[in-house]
Design a protein around this nucleic acid. Structure first.
Lengths: 102, 102
DNA sequence: ATTATATTTGCCAAATAATGTCAAGTCAAA
DNA sequence: TTTGACTTGACATTATTTGGCAAATATAAT
């Protein structure tokens, strides 16, 4: 369980002495929901990540990177070929970035 | 569209002069389904990947790696932080592999 | 200890996404 | 123009994710 994104935003929130329900209310989301997100039991939407970055006054990219990394990790976590597959995916990504096409 | 896994198995199948419907029938799956998998329009189940490896007489890992890479790519394809996130995910994977815990 | 507040948990219904199946479509070769 | 291989699109079915609520637990204050 336990996600890097969740850990990060929980730490930030606590550092700023904000309550779950305060942040949840700004996000117009159930407190329980946010609690689950912080503990990695649920995924946040990208939109939510962006809003949280504003609320906690941090850079988008830092949070988005952790959030994405969690999703990738979920996909590969039980796979023997995880590392190789990530390298292949990186290559494909880099390749397509250069030859910009879908 | 177009997946590395799909391209690979289509190539292998054609090299061996097998018809979609022949392979599909061994897999007990609709021909249309397999067609979509080969063209990357649908995902194969892991179980299906393994069966295909047997049918096409190739190594599991080769196909599983491509199949996984496709899934990773789907997650990151439109993300600015894709590369960074993959690195973070790799580190987490390596880290947990060493400190074997969930 | 009792109350008050914060967070977590479990459950279920609603929403969303993935899959399977079929019929009709295209395309190329005979 | 008929046949066989493959593709496409639509739809029903199934599976997974989400949101929301109420009850349970913790944590803190009085």
């Amino acid at each position: 369980m336990s996600s890097q994104f969740g850990n990060k935003i929980r730490t930030l929130r606590e550092e700023q002495n904000l309550l779950l329900r305060q942040v949840a209310s700004i996000l117009e989301m159930d407190t329980a929901q946010l609690s689950k997100i912080e503990r990695g039991e649920r995924h946040a939407k990208k939109e939510t990540v962006l809003k949280i970055a504003v609320i906690l006054k941090v850079n988008d990219d830092e949070l988005l990177t952790l959030w994405l990394a969690d999703q990738i990790y979920d996909v590969v976590k039980d796979e023997r070929n995880a590392i190789k597959a990530m390298l292949v995916a990186e290559e494909k990504f880099e390749y397509l970035k250069i030859h910009k096409q879908k």
